[in-house]
C-alpha cells in the first residue's frame, strides 16, 4: 500500500513535470523556428520575402530533444557517480545540455542564412543574440523537467532502463508530441496570420509569411508570445497526459487483476479502455467541427 501511495505521488509529479516540459518545448521550438514550419522560413527569401525570423534547423524536434535530454541524463549520471547530490547533478547536466543546444542553434542559423546569400537574406546579429538566449531559457525549462521526470522513473518507480536510455525514450516522445501538437499552430496560424482564419493555407501562398509585427519588423520572439497562448499549453497537455497515463495505468492497475489469475494484465486493460475513451473524444471533436463549421462554400 505504501508503495502505491508513493507511486501515485511520483506519477502525478512526473506528469506535472512533463506538462511543463511540453509547454516549454513547443514555445522554444517556435521561438527558434524549428521543425516543419521552418521550411517556410527557409522558403520565404527564395520567394523574395526577406525576414528577421530565426532559422534553427538543427533537425526535427524529436531528434534534437532526444539529444538535449539524453545528454543531460548522461551528464547527471556521471556527476552522481562523482558523489554529487542528484538534484545538483541534474542541474549541471541541464546547464551543459542547454549550452550545447545554444551552440547548435547559432550554427544552424548562421549556416542556413549564409547559404541563402543568393537571395539577399542578411544575417542579423541582434536576432542571433536576443533569440538564442530566449530559446536557451525555454530549452532549460524543458530539459530540466524532462530529466527530473526520467530521474523519478528510474529511482522511485524502479524502471529497469538506465537514466540515458530513459532520456532517449522520453526526449523523443517529448519532441514528437510537441512538434505534432504545436507545429500546425505555429505554421498555419502564426506564420500565415494574414491568410483566412478557419482554412488551410493555399499552396500558392507558400513562402509569403508574415514579416511585420504590431510595430516594426517581426522577430521570432514575437512568435513565442503568440504560440505560448495555445500551442504551448496544448503541447504541454499532450506530453503531460502521455507521461501521466503511461505511469498511472502501470502504478495503479498493474496488479489489480492478479487475484483473478491475470497477473499484470490490469494495466493493459486499463490502457486499452483509455485508448477507446480518447477515440470517442476524437470522434466527438470531429463531428462537432463538421456540424458547427460546416462545409466550405465556393468563393463568390
Amino acid at each position: 500500500m505504501q508503495e502505491i501511495i508513493i507511486g501515485i505521488g511520483v506519477t502525478a509529479f512526473a506528469g506535472a513535470l512533463a506538462a511543463m516540459a511540453g509547454a516549454a518545448e513547443d514555445t522554444e521550438s517556435n521561438i527558434g523556428s524549428q521543425g516543419d514550419p521552418n521550411s517556410q522560413v527557409q522558403l520565404a527569401p527564395q520567394m523574395g520575402y526577406t525576414h528577421r525570423i530565426y532559422n534553427k534547423a538543427v533537425s526535427g524536434e524529436p531528434p534534437a530533444y532526444t539529444l538535449w535530454v539524453t545528454l543531460a541524463c548522461g551528464i547527471a549520471w556521471a556527476f552522481t557517480m562523482l558523489h554529487v547530490n542528484a538534484m545538483l547533478a541534474i542541474i549541471f547536466g541541464t546547464v551543459l545540455a542547454t549550452f550545447v543546444q545554444g551552440i547548435y542553434a547559432t550554427t544552424a542559423y548562421l549556416g542556413r542564412t549564409a547559404s541563402l546569400s543568393k537571395f539577399g537574406q542578411p544575417v542579423f546579429i541582434d536576432v542571433l543574440k536576443s533569440v538564442t538566449t530566449v530559446t536557451m531559457a525555454h530549452a532549460f525549462v524543458a530539459i530540466l523537467t524532462t530529466v527530473a521526470a526520467c530521474y523519478l522513473m528510474s529511482t522511485m518507480l524502479q524502471h529497469p532502463f538506465a537514466l540515458p536510455l530513459l532520456g532517449i525514450v522520453w526526449g523523443l516522445a517529448l519532441g514528437a508530441a510537441g512538434s505534432a501538437t504545436g507545429n500546425p499552430y505555429y505554421g498555419k496560424e502564426r506564420q500565415y496570420q494574414n491568410q483566412k482564419f478557419g482554412a488551410g493555407v493555399p499552396i500558392s501562398a507558400s513562402g509569403n509569411i508574415v514579416r511585420y509585427a504590431e510595430a516594426g519588423q517581426r522577430s521570432s520572439i514575437d512568435n513565442g508570445f503568440f504560440t505560448a497562448k495555445f500551442g504551448g499549453p496544448a503541447s504541454g497537455l499532450c506530453f503531460g497526459l502521455i507521461v501521466f497515463l503511461e505511469l498511472w495505468r502501470t502504478v495503479l492497475f498493474e496488479h489489480s487483476l492478479d487475484n483473478w489469475g491475470a497477473v499484470g494484465w490490469g494495466a493493459v486493460i486499463v490502457g486499452a479502455l483509455i485508448i477507446v475513451l480518447f477515440m470517442i473524444i476524437d470522434r466527438y471533436v470531429e463531428i462537432w467541427a463538421r456540424t458547427n463549421y460546416g462545409p466550405y462554400t465556393a468563393e463568390a
Binding site: 534547423a57 531528434p63 534534437a64 539529444l67 548522461g74 550554427t107 532502463f161 538506465a162 540515458p164 536510455l165
Partner: peptide
C-alpha cells in the same frame, strides 16, 4: 549505465547537422 546512448545520439546529430545546417 546507458552512456553509449549519449554517444549514439550525440554522434547522430553531429553527423547530420553540418550539411543540414548549411544546405541552400
Amino acid at each position: 549505465a546507458g552512456i553509449i546512448a549519449v554517444a549514439f545520439i550525440l554522434g547522430a546529430i553531429a553527423l547530420q547537422h553540418p550539411f543540414n545546417a548549411c544546405l541552400g
